[in-house]
Design a protein around this nucleic acid. Structure first.
Lengths: 233, 233, 233, 233
DNA sequence: AATGAATGAGACTTCATTCAT
DNA sequence: TATGAATGAAGTCTCATTCAT
């Protein structure tokens, strides 16, 4: 019936608002947004989240208070945006990638290395995020400003770690034990070592982090006699 | 009658501060002080330190705001007093006691068990103190209200843990490695597991804590070939 | 057995917390509260409700902003308290009193006179309250800060006026007509005349108000032929 | 052809400002202006004048905030323009027209009917203008944003009403009395009835308004004995 | 010493107005 | 000229601390 298909393509394209390059204005907007997030990251790292004043964030970002509010309706939105963004990066870094080794232990190392690199890159953010325990979702007090940052259980870094540990158990690389406790143990330990390294100028974050990974692997490695991990006894 | 009463009254008490039992007034004062600290503990646990209002502490302690200020000049003093007191208890629990085994591994278990018991007894306090990382002295941001709580390096729990780990190294029960990192690893891991257990009604804090201790012992146990711990490689 | 009856009296008194004269503190509290309301009345009259700043009210009341907030949690509460109190006075002034004449017309005059006296006494309040139409409950925009001041329909001055007009109708002193419209007419007219008089130094509020009452009585007086009021035609 | 073209271009237009039809640009400008005024009317009716945000007006008018400011230097100018324009319409509607009856009572009815129709047509505007008492010039608080809207006493609707009532007095159709008070009475009453009708969906604005006019005429009609109106006594 | 109201600095947020594109 | 983001003054409300009783 209808011979002309050209319009169809265009129509489809328009409907989905596809690759149209961002306008100047959109770019500028994104720049401001990013500047605010960057400044907030710094201020949060120094003052903590509650102690951070919008005014300080604005000043550090080189703009007025009003402008901050043009981009984020409330202080809390900044926190949530920041966390959400970084948690996404964190999950991506931790996710299994095409060329990752099949072997659990090797995969564990590689995936952790990517995470540690990310953390080093965003020291400011992670120094307060780890401090506040943002990615240890169970530990965050409900009064906290960021307790609501991620509604979806499955989008948490937390959860991805449990999955990996379970895989290790199935492969026999991790002695049988309670995965939730193991995750708490490991995430807590990484937090301790990485935060220590970040504050300690004589340490390299990556090196320290990798060493902690090895400690963990030693801790969970099944022994010859197949004795399960402690609490199972 | 009595020719020398003057010295007795003032000189004696002031100069040597002997064991004179506390007066009624002193006892009452101590009661107030304790009530404030107890209330603060609860409020801090719920609202965080910054979020805690003196008014709420006073109400929970059953007294007026003014009275709180008669005992502590500033909010910060409450925080410091609380932390200092608990840290003292923590160090005492962790300290080597007369009947503790000589053997490192056994001593490690026993001393940790005492600490874990203390933490369970003061869930309120430790749930925010661990959250805020108060005993991981290096990790506390300098803007924090309790960054100044303990001027003396040697009075920190922190330090006692390092000492114990060093002892383990000397005894050959801990593979040779960087003690500071090891402490960060272990304290972080304990924090993760204990906080998780405190929030999770289905877990027993002591049981979880002891399991974490075992994990740690596995991680640091020297292997047959005397291969040192990872980062030393 | 027990000869002393004094305690009984006291005990009973304590249980019901009856006439115990207000403590000094309660009196002081009431004074502050009243000072705030008085100041607010003045500021509202000058600046309007939205235009009134808590700071100005505090300054006029001779206290700090914080103190105002110790007595009223929000600006809106001041408004509501003020209106509620005055509306109560207004209803009381308008209410039928023991020695009021039975005759509708005379009662109408007397009761209005009391109301007008009250309005003159509280010029400040009524100059903005009438301006904002606070007692013409139907007219207040819902976005208004005081739209919620009186939840109970029957507690409104508004309603009392309708009742009186209905009585007039039953007695034949008011030609039959729509009472709601009549009330709107009369309240609007009184508002116009009274506000005009309050702003106009050459006029006496009471005199003007009474004249308006007479105009109204003329308007509604049934004519000889029993012709009903206009809209009924 | 035409020897004198220079004068035509500039001199003519500037000097005498003849009837040259509005240029396209002028027309466009007028359209914007009107769109802003229309939007403002709606927003003012909903939010009150102080509560109205330029941003909302702009959005409703389908343009940007900047454009609004290209047409009106300040928020207040919008208010004044709106009021001035409507007051002009109001005066025109109220003005004596060629075919109006000579008889006072009839003229009063006709002229009021025109006014009431206008009010119904511009419910949005009049619902806040009456609420704010804009046309009862004496009543507007000096802090009000529109207190300055009309510098010229003789351009006020207010004044025209007084004139009409005076005419009624001269003709003997209105019992002798204080005209200013009478005006306040009448305008207030109309305001009450009309606003009530505008908020009350079951009422027709015109019908209610006309009924109020009749009430007023009854109130002021001289009685047989020529007794003057109340306050003159 | 206990009380609890008073104080006021300071935080968050809104919005009229300006300005670069 | 239209646009809409940037600006910052100003308002509301909170809460640590002081103080009179």
């Amino acid at each position: 019936m209808n011979g002309n298909k050209a319009p169809r393509k265009a129509g489809g394209a328009a409907a989905v608002a596809p690759k149209k390059p961002p306008s100047l204005r959109q770019k500028a907007k994104a720049l401001y947004r990013q500047a605010i997030l960057d400044a907030a990251e710094r201020i949060f790292a120094t003052q903590g989240i509650r102690g951070a004043r919008i005014q300080d964030i604005a000043k550090l970002a080189g703009m007025s208070v009003g402008t901050v509010y043009n981009h984020f309706a409330q202080k809390e939105e900044i926190v949530v945006a920041l966390i959400t963004e970084r948690e996404k990066e964190l999950r991506e870094a931790f996710a299994c990638q095409p060329h990752d080794p099949q072997n659990f232990t090797e995969a564990f190392r590689i995936r952790h290395e990517r995470v540690i690199q990310l953390i080093r890159t965003h020291k400011d953010f992670f120094s307060f995020a780890l401090y506040e325990g943002i990615f240890e979702s169970e530990l965050v007090p409900s009064a906290s400003m960021f307790s609501t940052h991620s509604a979806d259980e499955h989008e948490r870094f937390d959860r991805a770690m449990e999955d990996l540990l379970e895989q290790g158990g199935r492969e026999g690389a991790v002695a049988p034990t309670d995965v939730v406790r193991l995750k708490r143990y490991h995430v807590g330990a990484m937090r301790g070592v990485l935060m220590g390294a970040m504050k300690d100028p004589s340490r390299d974050v990556v090196e320290e982090g990798l060493a902690a990974v090895e400690l963990f692997l030693r801790a969970v490695r099944p022994n010859a006699k197949g004795i399960p991990l402690p609490d199972i006894v």
